Every structure is written in structure tokens, then in C-alpha cells.
Simulated scan of single mutants.
Amino acid sequence: MNNSPVDATTDHSFLPYVSVVVPIYNGEADLPDLISCFLAQTYPQEQVEYLLVDNNSSDRTLNFLKTTAELSHLNIHPLSENQIQSSYAARNAGIRAAQGEIIVFTDADCRPQPQWLESLIQPFNQQNIVIVAGEITALPGKNILEKYADYQQTLSQKHTLSHPFCPYGQTANLAIRRIILEKVGLFRPYLTTGGDADICWRILKEKIGDLKFVPDAIVQHRHRTTLKELESQWRRYGRSNRYLHELYGVELMSEFTSKDYGYCLGRWLVKEIPKNTLKAIAGKASLIDFLITPIGLFTAKARYCGQTEAKLPENAKMIDWL
């Protein structure tokens, strides 16, 4: 992976036609803010098309997309994927309709910052770069779970880019050369999680180009606000572990036993709480410092449960092609 900083002297006349693909399921409430972010992009709007793919929503997402396409100054193409309930199938529908040299991915609940596209696209001026990942930061949040996730940088690409098996970028902020997808195929349409790792790994294992990380290409994303949402998020991470294990032999998360939980909780009560109490008195600790261990144990258990319960469906092994 090429992690060297992007050269500030890069030729900014490099402005290829770009296709931004967004899968959307019941995203009606998110779409006005997303469209506003697209309107604020510094990349020339005449060089961008936005392929917004409704994935069988039950709200008014599709109607909103059609109305916005008629009224907006943006080049918006409302599409539908109603046969397969999967964000990867929806992304494939967008890729098939795309005209751009570069295919960019983000999600409906993301908020791309104004220089997002401009920063994300520039590395493609180097022919050896075939994947570019931008950074994912948190939208401002006041809830204690949001603050915990922000403190841990849960959504940051730094976690996936340092994956011990092979680096990858999350589809919340990812760009791929279209010609590469013609060579390795599209997303696995029946996969429900882990597809971003899968497609990056298929590309990188072919040794046909490099991945570049651009920390200045930022999208913001909201963190989960309830324990139910947090559990669902980490169970999904666990399912992803299982699927990638079955596809690639990736090492699974080891079992976290009752003894392990007891040890961690005991350490928290006997050592961490007294230590953080003293720091809090000195004004150097917050509530988050006290809750890192119990919330971490909660997410670890959810992830392990997701990994244990999951089994890769046979049809999820199938790869779509252009």
C-alpha cells in the first residue's frame, strides 16, 4: 500500500469524469443533507455524475431522488435495485450505469466535505494508483456512546488500512478505477457485509496497482446512539469476520470467555476506576475514560456473537461482472 502523502504540487488540471455511486435504503431523511454536500463540492460539477441507487426502500426515497434529479443543478441519475436486498447489489447497479473513469463510493448517511472529491481523485494522476481511500470522521454528537466511538475513532480508515491480512478501504469513502473492475469483477451481490474488504483484496492480490490513503479527503458519518444500534454494528463486524474467514482464511476473533470478562471487569473496578477518579479530580479525565472498558467489553461480546452465529451463504460467493 502506498501511504506517502499526496504531493501538494499535484497537477490540479487532472479532472477525469467521475461517477459517484450511493446505495440507499430508507434514506429519505438523510438525502437533503447529502445533496447539499454534493452541491458544495469544489470538484467541477460538469465532471461528476451522481448515481443514487434506491435499494427497495419503504419510505419516499425514490420519489425524492426523482424530484431532486429534475430540480437540482447536479447531474443526478436515480436508479433502483429491487431484486436483491444488499448495498453491494445496489452499488453494482450504479457501476453498470456509470460513465466515469473513476467510480467513487459513499453512503447516504455520510457527509462529504467540500474538498472531498478534489482530494480523493488527485492520486489517480499516478497510473499505478488503482484504489484511493479517504478518511471517515465523526459527525458531532453529544450522546455518551457517540463520544466513546469518536474517542476510539471507530469509523476511521486507519483500522481497515492496517488489517493484518491485507489493507482495504471502507465503501463509505472509496474510489476505484473503472477499468480495474472490468478485470476483477464487481461486488458480490448477495454479500451483506465485508464486501469492501473483498473487492479491495481481489484487486490488490492481483498485483495490478496500489492503494493510496488520502487523509484530507474527508466524509463525516454519525455514530450509533443506542446500545441496540451499537450491538447491531458490532455483530455486523463479527459476521464480516466470519465471511472473510470463509472466503480468504482470515483469522477469526478468539473466544472471549467468562474468565476473560471477569478479569477485565475486576481490573476496571480495582485499578482503572481509582486511577481515573484521581485524574478526574485533577480535571484530566472525563466520563468516557471511566466507560472505555465496559463499553469495550460490550462491543467485543457483540462482535464475537456475530462471528459465531454467521455462516457465509453459498450465493454470497458469486461475483457480478460488467
Score class of each variant (00 low, 15 high):
142 K>T: 14
3 N>S: 15
36 S>G: 09
257 T>A: 02
130 V>Y: 00
196 D>I: 08
304 Y>C: 04
240 S>D: 08
124 F>V: 04
295 I>M: 02
116 W>E: 04
222 R>I: 09
105 F>T: 08
116 W>L: 01
263 Y>L: 13
114 P>W: 10
41 Q>G: 05
270 V>F: 12
176 I>Q: 00
107 D>F: 05
308 T>R: 11
283 G>H: 04
166 C>R: 09
261 Y>E: 15
315 N>R: 14
286 S>C: 07
204 L>M: 09
249 G>R: 05
119 S>W: 08
132 V>W: 00
18 V>T: 13
75 N>G: 02
96 R>D: 06
181 L>V: 00
115 Q>C: 11
93 A>V: 15
163 H>Y: 12
155 L>W: 12
297 L>E: 12
246 E>V: 05
21 V>D: 00
85 Q>D: 12
67 T>M: 09
162 S>F: 02
79 L>R: 06
221 H>Y: 13
261 Y>F: 14
134 G>R: 03
139 L>P: 00
207 K>R: 12
267 R>W: 15
213 F>D: 03
206 E>S: 06
310 A>H: 06
30 D>A: 12
285 A>F: 07
41 Q>F: 06
65 L>H: 05
65 L>C: 03
55 N>L: 04
84 I>F: 02
216 D>H: 12
287 L>Q: 11
247 L>M: 15
46 E>L: 05
15 L>R: 15
93 A>W: 01
93 A>E: 13
125 N>F: 10
322 L>T: 07
35 I>F: 15
164 P>W: 05
236 R>D: 09
239 R>D: 03
300 A>H: 11
98 A>C: 09
234 W>T: 06
5 P>K: 07
85 Q>C: 09
154 T>K: 05
38 F>K: 06
287 L>G: 02
29 A>P: 02
134 G>A: 02
60 R>C: 09
317 K>W: 11
74 L>D: 08
186 L>W: 03
181 L>T: 00
237 Y>W: 12
109 D>S: 10
225 T>I: 12
217 A>S: 09
146 E>T: 15
312 L>C: 05
26 N>V: 14
123 P>F: 01
179 I>G: 01
10 T>Q: 09
162 S>P: 03
91 R>Q: 07
190 Y>H: 11
98 A>D: 06
225 T>D: 10
278 L>T: 13
300 A>Y: 06
318 M>E: 10
135 E>W: 05
87 S>W: 07
7 D>M: 06
41 Q>M: 12
104 V>C: 04
145 L>F: 12
94 G>H: 03
167 P>M: 01
48 V>N: 04
62 L>S: 11
263 Y>H: 15
232 S>I: 13
89 A>S: 09
223 H>W: 14
299 T>D: 00
305 C>D: 15
225 T>G: 02
10 T>H: 10
149 A>N: 14
157 Q>T: 12
138 A>P: 00
294 P>E: 07
244 L>M: 14
71 L>F: 13
